[in-house]
């Protein structure tokens, strides 16, 4: 006992709040390790909700919220979760958070609840969320997990917002329901029916992936 008190515990140098390593946790999924364009996860919702910007934005916020908080919660309880039922526990956490989002939306933004309806519920099956819990939060500390969630969440968000921007612009001639082409005097802008269809999302997403891979030089092996 006495020897222990004499010996000063070696204080581990705490890592800076935004160290290089942590910055990479957030920035990697934005580009080089993007959940949609590189890992090709969460495609279904990327196709379904991106007809217009506004629902896409709400969807992005919902996904970022769910991903960050489920990462945090799972990371906090990671040492308590029995390994054999870990997937069930992860699902329960995600499903609870998604239901919360859906209920709040129903109470305070009924308009968007009607538009997004089923898709908010489908965040539960969004592979990005489960993927991050299983691959990251189960083995890392809470703070790092939050950063990881933010990175993946925003990585997902910016891609679907970009897809929605082009789809709404060419499909409906507007951005956030603001008629862009009418505003600049081009009243008979021919809107493209393909863009409001899911096929339009595939095409736009494909183009984004092409541009991105041309820049980063990423090759699938």
């Amino acid at each position: 006992m006495s020897t222990e008190t004499l010996e000063k515990p070696i204080k581990k140098e705490s890592e800076a709040l935004f160290s290089k390593r942590r910055q990479r946790i957030v920035s990697d999924p934005l580009n080089e390790d993007n959940p949609i364009t590189v890992q090709v996860l969460g495609i279904c919702s990327a196709l379904a909700v991106t007809v217009k910007m506004e629902p896409t934005l709400i969807m992005s916020i919902a996904v970022v919220f769910v991903i960050v908080f489920s990462n945090l919660i799972i990371s906090l309880i990671r040492n308590l979760v029995p390994t054999r039922i870990r997937i069930i526990v992860q699902l329960a956490v995600i499903a609870t958070l998604v239901t919360l989002v859906s209920e709040v939306l129903k109470a305070y933004n009924y308009e968007m609840y009607k538009v997004l309806g089923a898709f908010v519920g489908l965040i539960i099956t969004n592979c990005i969320v489960m993927g991050r819990l299983e691959a990251y939060a189960m083995g890392n500390k809470p703070y790092d997990s939050i950063l990881d969630g933010l990175g993946s969440g925003f990585g997902y968000a910016w891609i679907i917002l970009a897809v929605a921007f082009f789809r709404e612009l060419f499909g409906s001639g507007s951005v956030f329901d603001f008629k862009v082409f009418e505003a600049i005097g081009w009243t008979n802008f021919p809107t493209n029916g393909l863009m409001v269809d899911s096929i339009g999302a595939f095409i736009v997403l494909g183009l984004i992936i092409w541009v991105q891979r041309a820049k980063t030089g990423y090759v699938e092996n």
């Binding site: 308590l80 979760v81 029995p82 390994t83 054999r84 039922i85 069930i88 526990v89």
Partner: peptide, 11 residues
């Protein structure tokens, strides 16, 4: 942590 009792309690 892996015992059945613990799993049931946790659930």
């Amino acid at each position: 942590r892996q015992s059945n009792g613990y799993i049931i309690l946790f659930t």
